[in-house]
Design a binder for these strands. Structure first.
Lengths: 209, 209
DNA sequence: CGTGTTATTGACCACCCTGGTCAATTGTAT
DNA sequence: ATACAATTGACCAGGGTGGTCAATAACACG
């Protein structure tokens, strides 16, 4: 990441990084092609090496950017006071959904990095640290009193988390295959509320439904 | 697929096809390397072309084999009489789990083919036909009377399917990352029964729990 | 206008891997 | 000894790789 790149217009920076993220996400580091990256970004081969030292630092800088971005955009301000587990899952899920919709390149890139064996030790550490944080926060400050008592609370939480993940996964694939437009967005949230109401009826005591 | 391959020992045939499936699953048709396939299969380059015409027919024959295999091993005898939806999902999920565990190469290969744009029209048709069948059977002959009536039956079925998929997905990733041995298999089924009992308590009328 | 600086190009490099071939060798059964 | 099947891996032309660099284009300042 040379000064030439840093002094670039911010939007142009993002376009280039997005091209790199798309390519790295699809092929991994080793099989990613710098030729395809410059083609995607609409620039010449020379410019890439005017902006970055080499393929490795391009990848490192891109990963740094992506992790910074997801930390500051998705993981900031997700802590709250006490709430029900269903509400917690729904909130986090919604936040994730919005982020994935707004920055699909970053989301895909980080997802692929999650399974990658090509990261160095520091990068793996940072990636795992972020994921650990997310897992911790989901069970923090939950009002367990809302759960019906004839089912173990841990069991309820597992089942609810699986259910809501299933719903969001189905929506994701629907959006990917059909290319969901913004007018379906309301419909999506209506449906979501419908299912959440059902979940409350199933898992909560009557007074919390 | 020349006679030389057909007259081969069946196990050896499978080893070679498995090597091809691994490679195609990981890289898709175009980026798959015949050199890596022969290395995985432990044979020389020449033999591959002694057994198959070229890369394309190798892929076609491999896909044919895989689709035949999954049809006869996983999709045969999955129809039954009437049963509850939870029991249906659990049964199909279990069957899938067992198959994925026994033939992971085939499962991965077909999964990758599901998203592939590199198939020809006939191959896409056949692939979609198999998947359609599987989707149809899941809602056939379900005893809807078991569901509690204060929640819409379609809603219940959606929620249950997402939940059980979530569980099996978690088990799959656990097995992939930790390399689950057979001694954990019992534990896995115990847990599964535990969650199924909870689901029955949640979604069924009292007399069916 | 000239001059110096920065941005930008794409032809070019040596290298590696590709799908596929084939003459040569080994194994085997008669 | 002979015929035939199985098996090898060096080899091919072609294409893609990460990376370089001399040549320009664009622009700023005087």
């Amino acid at each position: 990441m040379k000064e030439a790149f840093i002094s670039l217009d911010e939007n142009r920076q993002y376009e280039i990084l997005a091209a790199a993220m798309d390519e790295f996400a699809e092929h991994g580091f080793k099989r990613a092609s710098t030729n395809r990256i410059v083609k995607r970004a609409g620039m010449s081969k020379g410019m890439l090496y005017y902006y970055f030292e080499n393929k490795q630092t391009l990848f490192d800088d891109t990963l740094d950017f992506a992790l910074d971005h997801i930390e500051s955009h998705m993981l900031r301000d997700i802590s709250t006071g006490t709430e029900g587990f269903i509400e917690r899952c729904a909130r986090l899920s919604h936040k994730k959904q919005v982020y994935f919709n707004q920055y699909p390149e970053i989301a895909r890139f980080i997802t692929s990095a999650y399974f990658s064996e090509e990261l160095d030790t520091d990068q793996k550490k940072r990636r795992d640290h972020i994921l650990k944080n997310r897992e911790r926060i989901i069970f923090d400050n939950i009002d367990l009193g809302r759960f019906r008592d004839d089912i173990d609370h841990r069991t309820s939480m597992k089942l609810i988390a699986w259910t809501i993940n299933g719903y969001t996964r189905e929506m994701e694939t629907m959006m990917e295959t059909e290319g969901m437009a913004f007018d379906h967005f309301d419909e999506y949230f209506e449906q979501f509320d419908h299912y959440l109401a059902a979940l409350r009826k199933l898992y909560y005591k009557e007074e919390y439904q």
